[in-house]
Amino acid sequence: MFVELLGTHFVHVALAAGAVVAVLAGLLGPLVVVRNNAFAVHGIAELGLTGAAGGLLIGLDVMTGALLGSLTVGLLLGLLGLRGRDRDTATGALLAAGLGLGVLFLSRLHTYASTGFGLLFGNITAVSDAQLTRLTIVAAVVLVALALLWRPLWFASVDADAAQARGVPTRALAVAFPVLLAAAVAETIQVTGVLLILTLVVTPAAAAQRLTARPVHAVAVSVALALAATLGGILASLAWDAPTSFFIAVLSFAAYLIARLTGTRTAAHTRAGPEAAPRTTVTPADGGAHRHEGTSGAAAG
């Protein structure tokens, strides 16, 4: 059964689409993590759902609608240029309102349940040849733009003040990045669905930065992990009858856990300098040790 499925066309298309999306998500992930944009990714994805549902209502294709929806909110978030808590609350307000509209759109569709489920949790096997072509074109455009903006984007993401003094157009980049992100998110929705978007856009990058401090390596590891989780997830869902996005999420999270467990040990060596302060662990009354994780949580501010 599994071997027979491997020979079918729809599996080839799914694997190709998964690979394209994984490369895109893996490349953007480290910048998302460094810029602390995980919540914005979620907001963009949920507005992508609204766009997709709205698009279906007026006769557009799911991907076109998702792309329009997420690009709109990406541009909006970029132009608002919000920072810190203000950015998170505005994103929250925007995504909740958008999702409400999305529910209305979905309820007007005859295929309410199946379409909604596909958008929320992904439906990679439904990707058609034409969609794969479009997916690849959008990905190529994002990749070229990303390559062009690569160094200034990193500079602005790491140290905006120094970058600005050095002539980096930080304001323009603050608009350009969410737009690129929106295009990538609209594509990733196809694979993981809206709700599991972070499993490809954030988790691999979060794992990667636990393993290496070199930016180039972090990006390479992030792409590799996103690819492994996506392709592995698609193949696993053929072998065992369970949703693709479940397997992708499991694989991606497993990689993150392993990176955390092995990564902290190497970190202990580098912070052994005389001036390095010990990490504070707070043990609250309920007994469990909590540590606030600034980059992996969706609600991190």
Binding site: R151, P152, V158, R214, T295
Partner: peptide, 25 residues
Amino acid sequence: LDSELPLRGVDLVRLGLDGHRWGPG
């Protein structure tokens, strides 16, 4: 700087040299 930032000292300094230029470098 965030303790998890995937960036080394050499990378930070290098940004001052060509971090403003287009392209991946």
